Measured scan of single mutants.
Amino acid sequence: MPSETPQAEVGPTGCPHRSGPHSAKGSLEKGSPEDKEAKEPLWIRPDAPSRCTWQLGRPASESPHHHTAPAKSPKILPDILKKIGDTPMVRINKIGKKFGLKCELLAKCEFFNAGGSVKDRISLRMIEDAERDGTLKPGDTIIEPTSGNTGIGLALAAAVRGYRCIIVMPEKMSSEKVDVLRALGAEIVRTPTNARFDSPESHVGVAWRLKNEIPNSHILDQYRNASNPLAHYDTTADEILQQCDGKLDMLVASVGTGGTITGIARKLKEKCPGCRIIGVDPEGSILAEPEELNQTEQTTYEVEGIGYDFIPTVLDRTVVDKWFKSNDEEAFTFARMLIAQEGLLCGGSAGSTVAVAVKAAQELQEGQRCVVILPDSVRNYMTKFLSDRWMLQKGFLKEEDLTEKKPWWWHLRVQELGLSAPLTVLPTITCGHTIEILREKGFDQAPVVDEAGVILGMVTLGNMLSSLLAGKVQPSDQVGKVIYKQFKQIRLTDTLGRLSHILEMDHFALVV
């Protein structure tokens, strides 16, 4: 994948999101292997301009796509893939009243899908469409860049269908997702969380590099694949309309690839034109409109599966009536509230959605109805927002919020430890010299600072030695090549209790 991002070429006709291997024109390309080798690009942008032909009021008969309808489940399912879809609609009884809503608040519980998330729908649909058009064949390999849930859905379907599955996901995604993927037989590649989507090191860039190296491999490409919004247009939206008897006044959905909100909203605009569509985008993402909503100094966020630093091709923002931004604290607070007060075992993005819903639905009156999409299960986040310690460490809970008995030293300040200034190293000294210094002084790690004293990161003896043994660096290389740029900081005025929580999850903390 090139470091400079080429513009994806656009073909003359058809839909841009065809499933299957992508040609340089962004659509299915038939021909000899030699032709494909000559024409197939190194990668295709996940934010390529959409060429979708959908228009409100256009006859369904003019759609270029294969459409399906929700099917009634048999008493005995032939395999677990038949437990994807037909998820329950559940009334939220307490939270709406707590925040003064007059309307009825309903939750579409997508964590009841077989793999635990709304992404099971698009995973199965992308595979079925690729099999139907002859792209996927027995023994082929599926590769997908994902925040985890699409990966789980694909790995689940691949396990049943017999495909090899490789999932490329950023490091910030939970260990629970990784464990589930491994249990399903998927191979996992992790990428830096802070890598831009168009960087060769991003999950998108690495996935395309693997595709170019592995024979008979395919990126189904949830960011561009029409099967993504079509899955929701054909099934999720129809289920909502049936469950609500066609009567709903507002739908609120958090947005990642945009397939969920695009597919549902398009069908609702056709069948229930008075329904307002509300999009939820986390602070630090750029999906919301108008652009002024996205202006923030924050560039990272903890909530998973929603928000991006690019506009995915499948996201149709014209069908969203209003956007709201959400933050991590309210997302996790509301997710825990949904679990504790409503018994809905949902993930953090569901918290984002409901946090926005109780604001947006203030305009609705008694007798009206708001539906929220709860995308995934708490299963993926047992060591994250479900953990009091994690919430404390991230600053989303305060010590006084917890009532468990603490040891005698818990409320003492870090400054009472009488710490001395640490050994520091410059980023320009060599790895070999740094190892000598650390061994001589008896230290395992040291902060790396520039000549102005600005902290650049941390270097550890173990990481340097393993990097040297693996051949990633040489003793003569500058130590700046092996620094940890993500590390926890703590102030002298913070409590030892807070430091204790940090050290339970990290090997060190830097006192500043």
Rank of each mutant, 00 (worst) to 15 (best):
P2L: 14
E4Y: 10
Q7C: 15
A8G: 07
V10T: 09
T13R: 02
P16C: 02
R18I: 15
S19P: 12
S23A: 15
S27K: 12
L28V: 14
S32F: 07
K39S: 04
I44Q: 13
P49L: 02
P49S: 10
Q55D: 02
L56R: 12
R58M: 09
R58K: 12
S63E: 02
S63Y: 05
P64Y: 02
H65S: 05
T68D: 15
A69G: 06
K75L: 14
L77C: 08
P78M: 02
D79T: 12
K83V: 04
M89Q: 02
V90M: 05
R91L: 06
K94P: 02
I95C: 09
F99I: 12
L101E: 02
L106D: 02
F111G: 06
N113R: 02
A114I: 06
G116D: 10
I127M: 06
T135G: 06
T135S: 02
P138M: 07
D140Y: 07
T141A: 12
T141M: 11
I142C: 06
I143C: 02
T146S: 02
L154E: 05
A155L: 06
V160C: 15
G162L: 05
R164Q: 02
R164C: 11
P170L: 04
P170G: 07
S174F: 04
S174N: 02
E176H: 02
L181R: 02
A186T: 06
A186S: 02
T193F: 07
N194R: 02
A195V: 13
R196L: 09
D198V: 02
P200F: 06
P200V: 08
P200C: 02
S202A: 08
H203S: 10
H203V: 02
W208M: 08
R209V: 09
Y223N: 05
N225W: 02
N225G: 02
S227A: 10
Y233K: 06
A237E: 15
C244I: 02
L248A: 07
L248D: 06
D249A: 15
L251W: 02
A253S: 07
S254K: 05
V255I: 02
T257I: 04
T262F: 04
G263K: 05
G263F: 02
E270W: 02
K271F: 13
K271G: 06
C272A: 11
P273E: 09
P273M: 14
C275N: 04
R276Q: 05
